[in-house]
Amino acid sequence: MTLNVKVFRFNPETDKVPRFDTFKIEEFPNMAVLDVVMNIQNYHDPTLAYRCSCRIGMCGSCAMYINGRPRLACRTQVSSLGTKDITIMPLPNLPIIRDLAVDMEPFFEKYKKIKPYLIPKQDLKEPVICKPDSGERELIDYMLECITCGACYGACTMVATDPHYLGPAALTRAYCLIADKRDAATRERLVIVEQSEGVWRCHTQFNCAEVCPKKIVPTQAIQQLKKRCVFKRLGLFRG
């Protein structure tokens, strides 16, 4: 079967406006969209720029806007698209370096703002006990699967309309740390996420959850944070 592939092309150094190039690519069994992109670069146009590394959905570098949604190119089977017409564009809401490669800097700048690392409590004598079956722990556990691919960031209309909104991934990370009993910087992080361009930009659109390759629901992490922000304002927040 032949695939009709439309690829977004833009080189800010030489082009005034972007364009689409089309390629006819032979499909092979179990072909992923990343295979399509590599095939184009190997056999049709070596100047095509894109980013990838692991090819197994764990490095988070190959998120692209494929047939109307941000998806990991390496984890998206061509057969799952249900059509032979494939349109590949760069991940939305991030500056384009060239063609399909975007600059992830704004995404990670916001990630850094919430201090995405554990700041351990120093005064603990006993080990913290987090029961595996406590509801909160389960939320953290699956949310820690985030590979910072930015698919959620590229799918969110609130990110698209407000360049300063922290976005789903950074807020989900903030929640994982704020809900962590061993962490000492809970309040510090809450002060950052309680800003209007923190949790309050979320309008429960769920596009982030729809596109997350790890099936995370950032909307729920953000709700957990909103709850804590309200409790904090009311002077009822402990932790």
Binding site: P12, R69, M89, P90, P92, P95, I96, H203, E210
Partner: peptide, 24 residues
Amino acid sequence: MYTFKNRSQVWDTVGMWAWLFHRV
């Protein structure tokens, strides 16, 4: 230097339309 962003939205989700209609 970086002058361009893809501004495409995700249109094939229930939540997108639920949100858009709610605002409208």
